[in-house]
Design a protein around this nucleic acid. Structure first.
Lengths: 230, 230
DNA sequence: CGATTACTTGACACGTTTCAAACGCAGTGG
DNA sequence: CCACTGCGTTTGAAACGTGTCAAGTAATCG
């Protein structure tokens, strides 16, 4: 374990450590900081997506509209994550800010050129994309085999960890949930009502508590993990 | 085992078209053909996976063992698909042959070196990995929001298409299913019984018929697509 | 403060799982 | 050739969990 795990700081450090300064400088020259407010859409599914970017702060979601008109969230982006298709291909999802976010945007052609000049960066991007694939497959297992209670508990655990609040300072942790109940339902393939019921259940067994509806306190991480089926 | 392979990825048209002959020659020099029988495991989850490979013929599955001891199939590999982690990272799934298969295996270090020498190949691999990610996310939507009937119909449609039998010759098509009912259940997050019932239902409405239990005939592709919810 | 939105809780219907049994087919030995 | 056995598949009945519909409560914003 060690220091603050998995938070954006360490992720950035991993990126920095793996890259030589020249590569970072090259990126800096073509990058532009952009801010989006909560709810704003960075790009739409089917767009030619002329920009790539890295997420610097905040949380975003990847959304697809299903054939029956419902929205399904197929992924979340946390600080340090990469956005875009440097070598072509169409982004299949809308990318929407769940909180106020700050990104560093790169024109696609320029970003691709920078990748070509800096092997290590391209290799890192490939390794990350494969890691993302593993994460998507983990969710696939969850969606296929986990009951509602396990999905909700697993999601809360995941968010707490990826926002850096879990496993860092003592037994309990506080997180501001980036998603409302409806969005959790879209992500987990459940209904709002079921999500709400499962959260209530986690409260009654003492795994978590809430301040308002969005501030989550993980009272008993072990209990939460067990509810998630791990 | 296995012999030299001069045209390891010839079956992969897209790859060939995108790559210059020098890159293909370079791959041919380091690649070795291997065959696996149905049921054999190429590599286990957690292995350091010292080889990369492309699948030349047959079908393979990616399997994870869940915490409760069940197996879940999180992906399938068809001819032309890539296997492995050229730049490190641990393969998180078992890779098992569903049929007799033929692969072209590359030592990881040598494959990585070849990628470094041939930019276009590495870019292609990245693009493919991102496409694979999209496919995993499509399944994620299915697993989250589709009913049992839609999952089964969607799966059959997908297999028929990826094995090249659909959309090629007229209205009906014949496919040898690479998975038994139990494996379909593992893939779709259902039980054997439910899969069986849904297949029976697709027969009664005339979308498909069966010869034995594994030879599938798509009688009405449009009807099958509608049952899949598209 | 009221209006609007988001969340929670309850009762019932529906679909999937679970448990159980029957069926069909391939391989084996009488 | 047939009965027997083992395995995968199909079918049936009941239990369970989640979705649906409806109402009530808490939070947010003007």
């Amino acid at each position: 374990m060690g220091s603050r795990c998995d938070s954006c700081i360490v992720r950035d450090r991993a990126l920095c450590a793996a890259l030589d300064p020249a590569a970072l400088q090259a990126l800096g020259r073509i990058g532009v900081v952009r801010r989006l407010g909560r709810g704003e859409t960075l790009s739409w599914a089917g767009d030619d997506a002329p920009t790539c970017a890295t997420l610097q702060s905040g949380v975003m979601k990847l959304v697809v509209v299903t054939s029956d008109g419902e929205q399904a969230i197929v992924g979340m982006l946390f600080p340090g994550d990469f956005i875009g298709r440097p070598f072509g291909g169409v982004q299949q999802q809308d990318i929407v800010a769940l909180t106020d976010v700050q990104i560093c945007a790169f024109p696609r052609a320029a970003f691709a050129a920078t990748l070509r000049d800096h092997q290590a960066m391209q290799e890192l991007l490939l390794a990350r994309t494969m890691a993302e694939l593993d994460r998507a497959r983990d969710w696939l297992v969850r969606m296929g085999h986990a009951r509602a209670g396990e999905r909700v508990a697993g999601f809360l655990e995941d968010v707490a960890r990826r926002l850096g609040a879990l496993g860092c300072e003592g037994p309990s942790a506080v997180v501001e949930l980036p998603l409302g109940r409806g969005e959790m339902a879209e992500l987990l393939g459940l209904t709002i009502e079921t999500v709400s019921r499962q959260i209530s259940r986690l409260k009654t067994i003492g795994a978590i508590s809430l301040q308002g509806t969005r501030r989550l306190i993980v009272e008993d991480p072990a209990l939460l993990a067990r509810a998630a089926g791990r």
